[in-house]
Design a protein around this nucleic acid. Structure first.
Length: 593
RNA sequence: GGUUCCGUAGCUCAGUUGGAUAGAGCAACAGCCUUCUAAGCUGUGGGUCGCGCGUUCGAAUCGCGCCGGAAUCACCA
């Protein structure tokens, strides 16, 4: 990379001219701003101490040195303390020639090192996925792709929360009022069907509470006396004791839900290498806690409950086992983490979980460290903000959740309507058209979600449906499709292409080349920050720059064959990178639209 | 109250390890389809980067203090 050469030259320049040593990270090299001539800029302020001169003379001396030492640099300019370097057109041509044939440009080959585990999705089996899960799933999938592109050996895992009182609620409601309803019989999607019974339980429970309160009890007593809640708790005890009939029902209803989830995941375009179930890990968690208590790393209170005392770390005491010996959320996570270490011996374990659980994960790490597990440090919480609606947070009880399946359907329908209005699919087969509508609808949704910094809460307004114009997925897809058709019509063949060294590269073309050149750096940065938003914003910048150029300079009309060839090569390469970026976001790109 | 995160144009969001005159899209207005895809492009208007102080050649970015919002601090998951 040319950047490394310049940095080296700067270090050498300061050493030779001023007799001082500087570290590589002290050299500030950045892209030259559009309004100035140049490709790369060295900030010389940091060197003025060594030179004991003003910024301009220092820049001039270093500039002269770089010109002499780095053959790829043909020119420099100085504005205040900024040394703007111009890269020779030959360098860009050679770069384009080399990389145009390289399908793996920017992608680091996977190493054989220890795997990186990434957990995401983590649904409950008592309700269908909603908009919050969509953000989780898309982030998890994209982060996993980015890590792979950065050379990590990635294993995607899901963790299904398939046990506990909430599951028993939907089971009980189905038993009482279900009349044997099944997905096959009713034609409903399994997760939605089970979700309906969960809601039904809540409705009946509230009704009962209201009746009890009306008869003179206070809220708390009413909750305790509620017969249907007591029945649900009885069901939980039956489940824990391994009652055959209960387990059978549980397995059946879970199977319905899993079939429903699989469909949702398929539509979303995500998949996992392995799925963990909390019903398999909570006992292991209990074991870990009991062992820790025996070693006096944890303490048992008089009522029999077990706690981790984290007050030295400025945190609270944390419950790990209830007084009745049953496990809590944290207990299960201890077991799950342990199981994963046994299964894969991972380098890192990433958890894509909402920022509402930031505290949970700091505690999880602390407790594991307290228990003497060296791999506690491998755990990393990929935290993300909530998706909010204009009226505030989504609440399932108030019916303000945006259902994932509904939303994805809606996106596809909208995509179809708009595409047909534009008459784009007139010559498509029905299958091709359907595939395109799916790509565009999902592309719009995915890009909308992923372009926002994960840490921030984001707003989704169902009234104003997601845009298809401007900084959107379809805009990028559209540009890709246009590049594809351009290449096809232009009769361009990379294998046969030769780029004339006499080409004069205009400003817009340099901008595109610089952006493409940055691609590997962007992937690495996104991998370090675990942020698909980096990729999304980069892709938009590249796409927009290309579009501006495309509009200004007709590609196919150009008479000079050498220029025509160069521009087709540039388009092909840009198209390749756009496709690569979209793949990192989990978004498909069409060849025509 | 403690801890963590957020606050940038009317709205949704970018803004690189501190760097040059803070950028896009949407919305509004004015242009561009006889030429290769108008889901596009060009132009106009729109800013006390929540407020204040500090650090320095330089702060939207770092530190401290306020103001506003969110999450969390459960024998829920």
């Amino acid at each position: 990379m040319i950047e490394d050469k310049i940095i080296e030259a700067c270090i050498a320049a300061v050493k030779q001219l001023y007799g001082q040593d500087v570290q590589a990270d002290a050299v500030q090299l950045q892209k030259t701003r559009k309004e100035f001539e140049g490709d790369l800029t060295v900030v010389v302020f940091p060197f003025t101490k060594a030179s004991r001169k003003g910024p301009e003379p220092t820049a001039q001396e270093i500039g002269e040195y770089i010109i002499a030492q780095v053959p790829e640099i043909c020119k420099y300019g100085i504005v205040k303390g900024f040394l703007n370097l111009v890269v020779k057109p030959e360098y860009w041509l050679e770069f384009l020639r080399q990389q145009n044939k390289n399908p793996n440009f920017g992608i680091v080959a996977s190493s054989a090192s220890k795997p990186w585990l990434i957990e995401f999705s983590s649904p409950n089996t008592n309700k269908p996925l909603h908009l919050g899960h969509i953000r989780n799933n898309l982030l998890g999938w994209s982060v996993s792709k980015i890590l792979e592109a950065d050379g990590k050996n990635v294993i995607r895992v899901n963790l299904v929360n398939d046990r506990g009182i909430h599951i028993c609620k939907s089971m009980l409601a189905w038993k009482k009022w279900g009349n044997g309803e099944s997905p096959e019989g009713s034609g409903k999607k399994g997760d939605h069907l089970v979700g309906e019974y969960y809601v039904l339980f809540d409705k009946e429970y509230k009704k009962e509470i209201a009746a009890l309160v009306a008869s003179g009890l206070n809220e708390e007593e009413a909750q305790k006396q509620s017969s249907i809640m007591q029945e649900a708790q009885k069901l939980l005890r039956l489940w824990e004791s391994g009652d055959e009939e209960t387990l059978k029902l549980w397995k059946m209803m879970n199977a319905w839900v899993y079939a429903g989830f699989d469909l949702t995941y398929q539509t979303m375009g995500i998949a996992f290498e392995k799925t963990y179930y909390e019903s398999n890990t909570y006992l292991l968690g209990k074991e870990i806690v009991e062992k820790g208590e025996a070693q006096h790393l944890l303490k048992r209170k008089e009522d029999g409950s077990v706690w981790a005392d984290l007050t030295d770390d400025g945190l609270d005491e944390k419950l790990l086992l209830r007084s009745d010996g049953t496990s809590v959320y944290m207990t299960q996570d201890l077991g799950t983490a342990r199981l994963r270490v046994d299964d894969f011996n991972p380098e890192r374990m990433l958890y894509v979980v909402g920022n509402e659980q930031n505290y949970h994960f700091t505690v999880l790490k602390k407790v594991l460290a307290r228990l003497g597990f060296p791999w506690a440090e491998a755990i990393h919480h990929v935290s993300y903000g909530m998706v909010e609606l204009p009226e505030g947070k989504m609440k399932s009880r108030e019916g303000t959740v945006v259902d994932a399946d509904d939303l994805m359907d809606e996106m596809k329908t909208t995509a179809q309507r708009m595409t047909e209005e534009l008459g784009k699919t007139a010559d498509f087969t029905p299958e091709e058209a359907d595939r395109l509508y799916h790509m565009i609808g999902m592309g719009a949704l995915k890009y909308f979600i992923l372009k926002v910094d994960p840490e921030k809460n984001m707003l989704f307004n169902p009234e104003e449906s997601i845009d298809f114009d401007g900084n959107t997925g379809p805009f990028i897809q559209y540009t890709h499709a246009r590049i594809c058709s351009l290449i096809k019509r232009g009769g361009f063949d990379i294998e046969k292409s030769s780029l004339s060294p006499q080409i004069v590269i205009c400003d817009e073309e340099r901008d595109i080349l610089r952006l493409c050149h940055d691609f590997p750096v962007i992937i690495h940065k996104a991998a370090l920050e675990l942020s698909p938003a980096q990729i999304a914003n980069y892709t938009y910048e590249l796409t927009r720059t290309y579009n501006t150029f495309y509009q200004k300079i007709p590609v196919l009309k150009e008479n000079d064959e050498a220029i025509r060839h160069f521009r087709l090569a540039l388009s092909a390469f840009t198209g390749h990178i756009i496709k690569e970026c979209m793949c990192l976001l989990g978004i498909e790109v069409p060849e025509r639209m």
